[in-house]
């Protein structure tokens, strides 16, 4: 459902630290100070952020981000 509540998951074992997710949705994603891999700031972002998070998942070169309806 477009714009509905959703959950986001990241797979840090796949992450290559390209940083595209942080640029798209900085309130949802960050990068670890230790090795630059993705840090999820919230697994249930505001529904208004769905488009930005979908784009982050689409742009992630490693396929490390997935979305699911809540």
């Amino acid at each position: 459902m477009v714009g509905g509540a959703f959950k986001v998951r990241v797979d840090t074992t796949k992450c290559v630290g390209a940083g595209r997710c942080v640029a798209q949705a900085p309130t949802v994603f960050d990068q670890s100070e230790e090795d630059g891999t993705v840090v999820l700031l919230t697994d249930s972002p505001d529904a208004a952020l769905r488009q930005a998070v979908e784009k982050a998942a689409r742009l992630c070169p490693a396929g490390a981000i997935t979305l699911a309806d809540a």
Binding site: G17, G19, A23, P26, D30, Q31, S32, G36
Partner: peptide, 17 residues
């Protein structure tokens, strides 16, 4: 690849840049 790349990833993180 991942072993070595991860030693440099944080140096190129969004915030650092």
């Amino acid at each position: 690849h991942q072993h070595f790349r991860r030693m440099f990833t944080r140096e190129f993180s969004h915030k650092r840049m």
